[in-house]
Amino acid sequence: MKPMDLGAARASTSLPAALGQRIEPTPESKPLLKIEELSLSRGESLILDNVTFSLRRGGTLGLLGESGAGKSTIALTLIGLLRTPEVGLSGTIELDGAGNVTEAGEDAWLKLRGRRVAMIFQDASAALNPCFTIGRQLMTPLRRVMGLSRSAARARAIELLESVGLNDTPSRLSAYPHQLSGGMQQRVMIAIALSSNPDLLLADEPTSALDVTIQAQIIRLILEETRRRSASCIFVLHDLALASQCCDDIVVLYGGQVMETGPSRIVLEAPMHPYTAALKGCVLEFDTEELRPLPSGAPSFASKTPGCRFAPRCPRALEKCAANKPPLADVHGRKLACWNPLT
């Protein structure tokens, strides 16, 4: 048996139960995704610095942090879209059944992208092609990837649209994206992502452009559909309250470094990293009297920066924080990278 990873540890604790029943993974099951010491550099900049986390089959994980934290970079790396020559990748991304895909070539990615790993983009209106009908955009992957005939693809497309809650589906197939509301466009994006029954779904801020009631519908839909297929899902989010509702585990990132990671119940209930605590202090609840925002600032990505990248903004920074990078260590049911954590 492998050493306990976060995903397996999560299975034994009670669940946030956003939707009640969950698939119970067998404790010895291999994680679907295991990322170890993943670094990504671009010229002199180190965009991701030793990112490590894992995700169990059927689990949900949230990547949290401000803009520039590297959340979307991780998502794009996981679907093999950051493969230009100037990007340097090191470390391992182990996808169950595909081995280490860090070094995989485009041929290998063509077999994974859209098939085993699919993505829901943030802005559905920009991600859908305005020149083609919904039907065409949904049927193309079904025919190309799944090898269905035209009529079978059409039948499956109707099924998929129904499963994501669109009504009047046959006529929707001939609609263009601009004829649909934002919520419906996002549903179509989800249908496209689900069309090939992926094992891993990446949802990059799937609801940030939507109204709250539609947001609740869409998040529920993603959770229901991934659960039905025993797929795993990685959410990229900036809303901690939403993350506590839909993610089993969370990874808090700052400047491409993992600050704190673990079961969302544990990490968000009592954050130990000053950064997680600061993010939580910015969440508005209906009785919030005082906000405690962090001072402004942006992380430095210079690869030579030796210490914790959050140190310049950190209210609890010590002298050694800027000089030495704290290791990601197991503390109180989570992993934490901090020299001076909250207790």
């Binding site: 946030p16 139960a17 956003a18 939707l19 509301s181 919520g183 419906m184 709250v212 009631t213 539609i214 947001q215 609740a216 519908q217 998040i219 529920r220 959770l223 809303d239 901690l240 309250a241 939403l242 506590s244 509702q245 839909c246 119940r265 968000l268 209930e269 969440v283 609840e285 209906f286």
Partner: peptide
């Protein structure tokens, strides 16, 4: 009430959203 239920809150279950748009 529905708007309140749909607003994210720490560890609350995701509400039954309103039907339709």
């Amino acid at each position: 009430r529905a708007l309140l239920n749909a607003s994210p809150r720490f560890f609350a279950p995701i509400s039954d959203p309103l039907p339709g748009e």
